[in-house]
Design a protein around this nucleic acid. Structure first.
Lengths: 335, 335
DNA sequence: ATGAAAGCGCTAACAA
DNA sequence: TTGTTAGCGCTTTCAT
């Protein structure tokens, strides 16, 4: 049985109130302070955070709900987030919903009933109603990556459209006209934005949009592979491909490798969020990446400001961060 | 203010005890059951897990302490672990110590004071004393990857020595005699084991150990890069290199790429834990990987058995799992 | 500066 | 089966 404040009270002859005050940084007579400190050491006392939470109604715990823990996109952000939250005394409970909307709802429900003080979420289906209920309980929510329709809350987003515009522009400037895009699922915020950026670029360079060059995937490796293969195996394949997320980029490279196509001679390829492939392929794969550390920091900041009341009254704050371009030899002029 | 059991009591006219029993799966008269259910819906009641924890002395929370959240090795395991724990009602608090022994100690301390019911840890320095104290409080601990000296507790380890033996054997059988190894830091369990496996193989194939071919790194990308570069730039470079972890394998590939060496003609390379490079490089990089999912499952199993008392009396259980071989064209006969 | 006492929301004897 | 009651360990008025 761990020691409690009562034990300290008994040992020092002081009251619970005094000890509590000392523990929470209040002023206590020097003599008493010494007595308490000694008792604490002697008993190996530490505060029972559960009891404290019951009384203060703050669990000092943040729930984090993400699509998948094996995804660098999620984990880099969380690594940063966990650190920043830890610095101000919060624990981070993580739930991974494995890209499954049912599990997303189930785990969100789980978190909602665990007395979390705040929630960070990368939504898939979104679970708007459950989130609205959280908000009603005055529990701050910060969204990452995508907003949730009909939910007015803080979010950290990336300028996807702009990033996509820039990447496709490079291809256009290199002289490509048959530029394909491998998008995410229609209706998904990031996918739509990235597609708009592609369209913006085509329009800007006066390239006619060819619907056949717009392929919709599921943001997974397999669809990257399949759709790229399908494009490359056409009679008249595209000369350049822009792939719009991490997993699909990986799949794309597999398909390109399989066909022994040389980049950029035979095909120009630009990937997304895959810094590794940028560094490890020959030639380096040009990629757009999202500023993961910065996202994590920004999320932590927003959340802590809500938690401490700094922003308690503010309306929803949405931060838009810039993506980062990593050049590479995987794209180039038409040969 | 969320509803409490008291509110339900008031609404139904029943006592707290009855409601508590119902909530915990006890038998209640059908009429009362209906009344309680109705009140719960009406009030939107959910159990306050903090209050319950205070009373039951179980937080239903597991602490997880890992070197780094951006490392697939950690996150794949945790993804699996979190899931299995969730299935039996546990939350997972994650702490990332960023490969820093000070932060390791600090965050372990943090977790230890947060009323966790169990701890899963991938140790660096180990923090033996703190872990011993946890054990004294009857809090089960499961170690991953490495044991901690002087600490007798459950662990899930990989047969590193055997895996290493097998990898180096492939190189020897391909006719190599100048086989280099890039190890982790001396004294680190996994590093030592993998080095022993290398030595075992040399001995088995009657190759003389050349100390110059044994390079000690820090398990980070940079040392993989630097040490590989150093080996390759020698007057008489090795014909084959075995790299013994994920990060260093990556660094190695960068160094090889930089020199435009063709595998396996000019160099045979075998990596570790880098399934991605196995699939994405041309030719595929042969690698040894650890069975991450299986590790996660095994950890969950061990922990839950301790938590539920199934193994409460057992002495420490150490599970040794087999590594997995992924073939690839990155190594081959001497040319 | 310190102490007495109430109570956070729940569970678990024990009694009825 | 249900109710009464005591407390889990802590914080926080309100007196002193």
């Amino acid at each position: 049985m761990p020691a409690t404040m009562k034990d300290i009270a008994r040992l020092t002859g002081l009251s619970l109130a005094t000890i509590s005050k000392y523990l929470n940084g209040g002023h206590v007579l020097p003599a008493n302070q010494r007595a308490i400190e000694q008792a604490i050491n002697q008993l190996g006392y530490t505060v029972n955070s559960v009891a404290r939470s019951l009384k203060t109604r703050r669990s000092m715990t943040i729930g984090v709900l993400i699509p998948h823990l094996e995804n660098v996109f999620s984990t880099s952000i969380i690594s940063e987030l966990e650190d920043k939250l830890h610095q101000v005394g919060y624990s981070t409970i993580i739930c991974d919903y494995h890209h499954d909307p049912e599990m997303e709802a189930e785990k969100l429900d789980f978190l909602a009933h665990r007395q979390i003080d705040g929630l960070v979420m990368m939504p898939l289906s979104g679970c708007r109603d459950a989130l609205v209920k959280l908000r009603e309980r005055q529990i701050p929510v910060v969204l990452i990556d995508r907003p949730v329709e009909g939910l007015d809350c803080d979010a950290v987003l990336v300028k996807n459209r702009k990033a996509s515009f820039q990447a496709v522009s490079r291809l256009a400037e290199a002289g490509h006209e048959r530029i394909a895009i491998i998008c995410g699922p229609q209706g998904v915020y990031t996918a739509d934005e990235r597609l708009y950026g592609y369209m913006d670029a085509l329009k800007h360079y006066q390239i006619k949009l060819d619907e056949d060059l717009v392929q919709y995937g599921n943001y997974d490796t397999k669809s990257g592979y399949v759709l790229t293969a399908r494009l490359l195996d056409r009679q008249k394949p595209p000369t350049a491909v822009f792939v719009t997320n991490h997993e699909m980029t990986y799949g794309s490279v597999l398909a390109v490798n399989e066909r022994d196509l040389l980049m950029p001679k035979q095909l120009s390829l630009i990937g997304f969020d895959h810094k590794l492939l940028n560094q490890v392929l020959r030639p380096p794969l040009a990629v757009v990446t999202q500023p993961l550390k910065q996202i994590g920091q920004t999320v932590a900041e927003l959340l802590v400001h809500r938690l401490t009341g700094i922003n308690r009254q503010e309306p929803a704050i949405i931060k838009y961060l810039d993506a980062v371009w990593h050049d590479g030899g995987s794209y180039g002029p038409l040969s």
